[in-house]
Amino acid sequence: MKFSVVVFPGSNSDYDAFYAASRVVGEDAALVWHKDTDLQGADVVILPGGFAHGDYLRTGAIARFSPIMGAVKAFADRGGPVLGICNGFQVLLEAGLLPGAMVRNDRVKFVSQLVPVRVEQTDTPFTAACASKQVLRLPIAHGEGNYYAPPEVLAEIEARRQVVFRYSSPSGEVSDAYNPNGSLNSIAGICNRERNVVGLMPHPERASEAQLGSADGRLVLASAVKWAAEGMLRHA
């Protein structure tokens, strides 16, 4: 299967995602320039981390106008799996492919650390290989990862089981003490209603081999492979 990683001007985790997909998970991978309009036969699309368009205006606000985003939206609408990592998550929020918005971290600091993240849902293309409530050790590196949604939207995404990842303690306890950025309900990642579009602030691609401090992130991309192997890809 093929992972297509979109490269925006200012992306900085594009090669990490490409490496994790091609060398760690061992699948085909391509880098797709944001001015292209063709996803090169993608089975899975990754919007990588970084600072697309310099985060001008708001994080992800300008990236949604990149020509490739039309193809990404069409791919998502057909049920294709789309993963937004960190800045990619912010792009998905600004593009309206996921609900809510990001605001500045509550302690106003850029946070860069390895954190425990609890898997809340395993019926998405990016968590299918995880166990329910499994705690992954993943790095975060962001200044605006404080997830916000109006109360009615938050209630709806909780009711529809769209919260896919939450910050937690190493043993999986969710509390404010383990919330690194002030995100509502300790939300680290969510999916859309159809569950094929997932965004998360932690970087699984930067934690895909033991020598990087954690290999837990490998499961996120390996999930897409499992998802495909089980015949769950519906976009073709």
Binding site: V103, R104, Y148, G182
Partner: peptide
């Protein structure tokens, strides 16, 4: 309704 961390600082 949205907390403004920068404004607070």
């Amino acid at each position: 309704s949205v907390f403004d961390p920068q404004g607070r600082v």
